[in-house]
Structure formats: structure tokens, C-alpha cells
Design a protein around this nucleic acid. Sequence first.
DNA 1: CTAGGGTTAG
Length: 574
Amino acid sequence: MYASCGATTYAHKLFGIIPHSHKDTVDWTTLMNCFAHHGMLNTAINLFSEMRKEGVRVDDVTIIVLFEACARLGNVAVGVQAHGSMVKMGLGFTVKACNAVMDMYGKCGLMGEARQVFEEMKEKSVVSWTVILDGVVKWEGVGSGMVVFSEMPDKNEVAWTIMIAAHIGSGFTKEGFTLLSEMVLGSGFGLNKVTFCSILSACAQSGDVVMGRWVHVRVLKAMGREMDVKVGTALVDMYAKSGRIDTAFKVFEYMPQKNVVAWNAMLNGLGMHGRGKAVVDMFPKMMEEAKPDDLTLMAVLNACSHTGLVDQGCHYFYNLESVYGLTPKIEHYACMVDILGRAGRLEEAEMLIKKMPIPPNEVVFGSLLASCSVHGKFEQGEGILKELIQMDPLNTEYHILLSNMYALAGKRYKATCLRQVLKLRGIRKVPGMSCIHVGGQVHQFSSGDKMHPQTQEIYIKLDEMIQKLRSAGYVPNTTFQVFSGCDGGEVNADEMEEREQAVFSHSEKLAVCFGLISTRANASLYIFKNLRICQDCHSAIKIVSKIYNREIVIRDRNRFHCFRQGLCSCSDYW
DNA sequence: CTAGGGTTAG
């Protein structure tokens, strides 16, 4: 009774008082189980050794309880030893006991042993297959997992979920979704809270709102108004990261209960969309309902930095401990350095780094370098780059950033040299890519891309667009277009032309053109870029949004830019 | 006996 009530210590004491002769297998097992379920796995394992010493008979449930404990604790030594001696004793293993043994081996990474038990089993249940599948996927990869999965005589929803989560988790989003539709439409399985969450998280990552909506419909069908907090949060995050911040807010408002994580997701979303004011306004409301944590303050500071709310940001940062009871972490320092740096207060930012009680990392310096680049402080930038290269020698972004700074200052020779250094070392810049979801398909573009089946139409549209832009007063900004072959002298007309062409065929412009020709008039365009949007594209797309009367939402590496009627939601502060 | 979830700095 005490054991099942969770009074472990009392149960253990009482158990000690009873003479050993009066205790049977069930008593011992009950107590072991009790310890195992209260996180006291070592005590459970010790109890098992004691039990063996006393010569008490070991049954099916005892074996299962023991191996479950070893699996959870990752205690291979005890598990392997116990299994070995049990086999020597000639103990009979039921299917369930074998499953528990295999699970232990699998969780500890001993797939050879797990497979051996599996091969030797005369009878295998679906669970046996699922246990092996889980181990294979975790230790041998999704590909090997697929082989086991296809060999399974019948598949349960656990097996399907393992495969779907593994695909999505390894970046094979498309394959994951294919499996999902097979599971739901082909095999008639339902989805549960766990599957909803992992799928929505994948949709958020890839910005796939079509799939996200499909899941949302199923969530409503399955749970109705009784929305689960975690599923609700996953929905909020998915809509926010797909550029639908208003929908995210609606889902958030309808959530019956909200915890810190839900608030964090909402505040983060608003921050990414440049709604710093909304974040600052919502924060006090949040405090009435939930206690803010590290991530909340990061979201708030981040929002301040992206909106230029410098004083507000300082206020939150300096009150982290006194008001919010939080110890400042390196992440908070990084946000603060960013707030000061973006606002041009570079000396203060550098002072803050010098005064930090934690050693600064590459994020902190990276942020400072970016700010130096924006504010043209190349001497300071050079110094920071040296630090950064030591911390992260293979990173190309920092070199490019500094190179762009030189280019901006007219020091094209230095800019070119820096790129040469990268080239000589064989380090290549991560290519910029832009994606646009149209008609349930993802269309991807790189700079100067001619691979798309509708390339011709896209480039015709591009020419038309550039012409319209020019007559609206657009002047291409080729400052950052550095060619490795140039000698740093005057730019001649031919090269100017070449540079302009390079800027025109940036991936985000191609994606916009494709969006313009493949969607109905006035429809909003949603584009995702893996790097930060470039200066020239930013000013060009502002004008595009006006002359074509389109809302264009671009998610770049850092945040969202929502272009509408010639303006951007970032207010050009980025 | 099997899977197991939501927020995370530049």
C-alpha cells in the first residue's frame, strides 16, 4: 500500500522489518517497481541483487521491471550481467521479457546484442519489432530503419510515429509527410498529441503553412475547444514562423490555458515580426498569468533590439536579477550587445563585453561585428574579426561581413583580398537560397538560377520588374557585389553592368518574380531565405510591394520582413 | 514490454 502511494522510504523500512521467509516474489517485485518509478533506479537494482542472494524466485514481471530500470538509467553493466546470468540459469523468457531486454540493449546502444535476442526469439510480437525499429533508427539511421519498417509483418501507430519523427528530425521533411499521409489516409490510424506536436514543429521549421493548416484541422477535430497547451503552443509557433503572425495571435487568444512556454512562443513570434511595441505591452499582462523565465527575457530583449527600443531593453537587462529573479546568461548579454550595437552605441557594447562575468562567445562577437559593419567602424571590426577567426576558423560569414564593410568604405582592394583568403583556404560561402511555397510545392532559387522549368517566364518578368523599379526611382546598390578578379581600380561601364546583373538575379528577386507570375493578383507572397536579406533586395522589394500592390513576407535568417505599400515592417532597422 | 511533444541570442 505504501509503495503504491509513493511513500518509498516508509515502504522500504516496513519491508526490512518483515522477515525474509515471509516475503515472496510479488513483494520484492512490487518494491522494486516502486523505486524504479520514483527515479530511484539504483535502489531498485540493488534490491534485485539482494533478492537473488536470498534465493527468491524471479518471474516475468521481475525481469521486466529490472530491465526497464536499467534501460532508463542507461546502466549497461548491470543489465548485461543480469541477462548473462539469467541465460546461464536457464531462466525462461517470455516475449514481453525479451522485449524488455532488447529495449535495454537498444537504449544503451548495444544493437548487436539486441539483434541477437531478436533473431533467437521464436515468437515475435509487434512490440518486439517496434523495439528493434526504435534502436535501429536511433543508432543506425533512418535508412536502416526504413528497411526494418518495411519488413514488419504488421505496423502499429507507434512504429509509424517513430518513422515519421525520425524523418522530420533528420531533415527529410517531405518523406516524413508522405509517411504521415500513408499512416492517416492509407492505414487509418489517428493522430495524438505527440504526433501533432512533432509534425507542427517540422512545419514551423520549413515554414509549410499548407501542411500546418492540414494538421490544425485535425487538431480541432480531435480535441475541439479543449486545446492542449503544448499542441496550442506548437500551432502558435508554426503560424508565427510561417509569416502568419495574426493567425498565431488568434490561436494564442483562444488557448484555454497558457503557461510560460506558450507566452514565450507568442512573444518570440511578435519579436521576429518586428512588433517590439506589442511585446513590451504584452509582457506585464503575461506576468499576471505566468512567471517569466530566461527565454521570456530573451524574447523581450530580442524584440527591443529588432525595434530599436534601446532604453526599454536596458531597463529589462539591468533589472534581470532584482525584478525578475533571473541570473543573466550569455544569451542575455548577447541580446544586450546587439541592442547597443545596432543603435550605434558600439563603445558601450564593447565595455559591456569587457565587464561580462562569463567569457564572451562567438555569438557575442558576431553581433558586435555585424554592428560595426552597419555603422562603418572597420578598425574595430578588424580587431573583432581576429578574435572571431580564432573562435570559429571555418565560419565564412564573418569574413564576408568584414569584406562588405571594406567595400562600403570604398576599400575594394581590401575587400577583394579578404575574399581571396577564403578562396585560397578552400572555404566557400554558404550559397543564398530563397524558397516560395506555391500550389503545395516548394520552389527553390539560388542566385542567377536557371534550373526552374519556368525560367524563361521568370526572367521576362524580372526584366519588366527592373524597368518598372527604375522608373519608380530605384537605383541598384552594387556596393557589396565584390568580384574576386577585380583589381581595386576604377569601375568601368562593363563591370558596372555585370555587377548590376548579379544583383538583379539574387535569389529573393527570382522568388518574387516567380510568385508574381504564379499566383492570382493581390495574393500575398511568402518567401524564405536561408541568409539575411541583402540591402539591395530590401529596397527593391519595398517598391515592388507598392507598384504590384502585393504584400510580400520574407523570413530571413533572423526575422521577418513584411513589405506592404512601399514600407517594411522592420522600419529599415536591421 | 514499444514512440513521446511545445519556446532558445548573431
